[in-house]
Structures are given as C-alpha cells and as structure tokens.
Amino acid sequence: MSEGPLRHHSFPPSFSESSVQPGPRMESLPEAVLIRILASIPAVDLVLACRLVCCQWKNLVDGAALWILKCQQEGLTGAESQENAENWQNFYFLSKKRKNLIKNPCGEEDLQHWGEVENGGDGWKIEELPGDFGKEFPSEEVRKYFVTSYEWCRKAQVIDLRAEGYWEELMDTTQPKVVVKDWYAGRSDAGCLYELCVKLLSENEDVLAEYKSETIAIPQDNDANWTEISHTFSNYGPGVRFVRFEHGGQDTLFWKGWYGVRVTNSSVTVEP
C-alpha cells in the first residue's frame, strides 16, 4: 500500500522559527567577563588549547590581565611577587613549579641521589640533630645532617632542568633566577673547613656560570650555630640545561671519626 504524501508540519505561533533567537556568543561577552571565565580553566589547557580557539582568546591568553588574575586567585602575588613582572604567564608557571630540586637534602635517605662522592678519612656519615656538641637546626622539619671526617669529603648532584619541567625557551629567553642555598655548622669542640661550588652547565656540560665560595674556616671552640650560605644566578645567558651542586669539607684537627663540617637542607630552586 502506497504511503500518502508527506504532511507539512508548522510550528505553533509561539514556537515559530522566527521567534527562536540564538543565545549570546562567547565573543560578545565583555572582555573582563571572558577573562574571569578563562581564569577558571587550568593553566596548561589555556596555553595548549584555549589560545588556539580564536585571535581574541590568543590575545587574552598571551596578555597580562588573565595571568595577573590567576596569580591573585591562587595567592601568588604576595610579598615575594614582582608586581612589575615582565611576563606574568612565566611568573605564574615558575611560581607554581617552584620546589627544591635537590633530592635527599637532609640525609633522610642516607647518601641516595648524591654522586661523585669523595669519602676522605672515615667518609661521610649521617647523624641525628643536634648531634654531639651541636645545636638544633632553625627549622624543626630538618632532623638529620651529613658530617665529614678528617680528610676532605665531597658530594655532588647534577640537576637536569628539562627533566624537571623547565623548557629550553624559558631558560634561554626568560632566564629565571637559579637560587642556591646551603647550611653548614661545626661542632663546638672541633675546627673544620667548608666549601660550596655550583655550576650552570650547557647541553655538552660546558660551564656557563659558576659560583664558588671561599674555603670557610670554623675555629675550634665555636658556637656550633647553623649558618646559611646562598647565591642567585641571573642574566646567565642562553644554553643552561643542568645545574651541578657540590659541597664538602673536613675537620682541622685530623681526629679519627666525624668531627668535620656538618651540612644539611641544601636547595636549588628556579624562581621568577
């Protein structure tokens, strides 16, 4: 049986096609509103996806206002921030990624992650704070330290910046600060020596910048207080891919055992 002709269905007057209006489009929103919407999106998605949607979104993602808002929302514009930061997107990512790149800085894992170890005398030893003839560390979170012997003891770590998430363009163009810190102390009944040497290295491990402390001598009958030493690398030029951190020391009385310098809470951070 053949079907009848198709019937024409018309919308009732209240639902006619002419009365159906499209909702407001994203590009019609005021820029300030659009920035607030984009600021709720994860940063990686903003860079990898949102900035590819259209020219307007690209300009907003590449601009300062969006990243200033994200920094404010996530508490990244406190006393440590730079209100005149040239590139707020990089400031945001560097602030979020900031962490100590030195592994096992306090000896909680024995000598794990430390390479090129030189064990002069009786070699390195890990002890509990405060130790004999020692003082407590300024932070309660630090519970152990490394201690040297009667001949030079040295140990080092090499940090692969790309493996830690600091991409080449960032290191070559922005050249964020590389901040190095270390803590050292003697025991009050023995004198000792301490040295710190940090190098910024290229892909081929050429030295592009270097900081080397003087040989610091701590006399016998010292107060055993912990002392912080620090250095900040900046404007070091393109090509930095690795950071090599080395420290060490010995006692000056040549007593058998572990009467040399004590070190702990070493750190390397990449900062805006």
Rank of each mutant, 00 (worst) to 15 (best):
R154V: 01
S139D: 15
L196I: 10
K199T: 02
G131R: 04
V178M: 11
A224E: 04
A185S: 15
E210N: 09
A224T: 03
Y211M: 04
D122N: 15
S188F: 08
P219M: 04
I126Y: 07
S149E: 03
E140T: 13
R143T: 15
S234V: 03
Y236P: 10
E116A: 12
T227M: 08
S230K: 14
D223H: 03
E210F: 01
G134F: 08
E195H: 01
G186R: 02
A209F: 10
I229L: 12
Y150T: 01
L170F: 05
E205V: 00
W114Q: 04
K125P: 00
V198R: 02
D122G: 04
Y150L: 11
K212R: 15
N235E: 13
S139G: 00
E205R: 14
D132A: 13
V117L: 00
F233C: 03
P176K: 09
G191S: 05
D132Q: 10
R162E: 15
L170S: 03
R143C: 11
E127R: 08
E203H: 13
Q220N: 13
A224S: 15
T227F: 09
E195T: 12
K155Q: 12
V207S: 05
I216H: 07
L200W: 01
H231E: 07
V179E: 10
Y166H: 08
L129I: 14
F146D: 02
I216E: 05
K177A: 14
K144H: 14
A190H: 11
F146K: 01
A224L: 07
V117M: 01
S188E: 08
E136N: 10
R154N: 11
Q157L: 09
F137A: 01
